[in-house]
Design a protein around this nucleic acid. Structure first.
Length: 116
DNA sequence: ATGGTGACGACGG
DNA sequence: ACCGTCGCCACCA
């Protein structure tokens, strides 16, 4: 996959507004890596090691509207807390309504920002 | 080389 | 709506 792909993935995630979420697949498509949802997760786990970033990783969730399970114990709760702090609401089953909270990126903004 | 492993997702039953 | 299966593909041992 390569460095530049990670850069594009992070660039997309940085555009997710506070209080909104995007799915892994959505981020992949916006980063021009359609079908590479799993690689988005990979890019995010690489991020944790470097802690020197402004990437709102908590805003990336899976297509079911839930925070994805992690190998790191209890990390899902950390992500949930950060999202709740932004006003994102979880239902009784721990799911987020994508209809309500999913970020709708415009194609126009997308390509303009990619160019810089 | 190569087979196992995911912070995934579409699909079918 | 819930689950199992499968396709996906970069990593890693």
């Amino acid at each position: 996959m390569g460095h530049s792909a990670y850069i594009r993935i992070y660039a997309v995630i940085r555009r997710i507004p506070k209080g909104r979420v995007a799915t892994y697949g959505q981020v992949a498509r916006l980063a021009q890596l359609p079908g590479h949802a799993r690689q988005v997760g990979y890019a995010l786990s690489a991020l944790q090691e470097t802690q020197e970033h402004e990437v709102p990783w908590q805003r990336v969730i899976n297509a079911k509207g839930e925070v994805s399970a992690r190998s790191i114990p209890d990390y899902e709760n950390v992500q949930q807390k950060r999202l709740k702090a932004e006003g994102v609401i979880f239902d009784a089953k721990g799911r987020i309504s994508l209809a309500r909270f999913q970020w709708k990126a415009t194609t126009k903004n997308h390509f303009r920002r990619l160019a810089m």
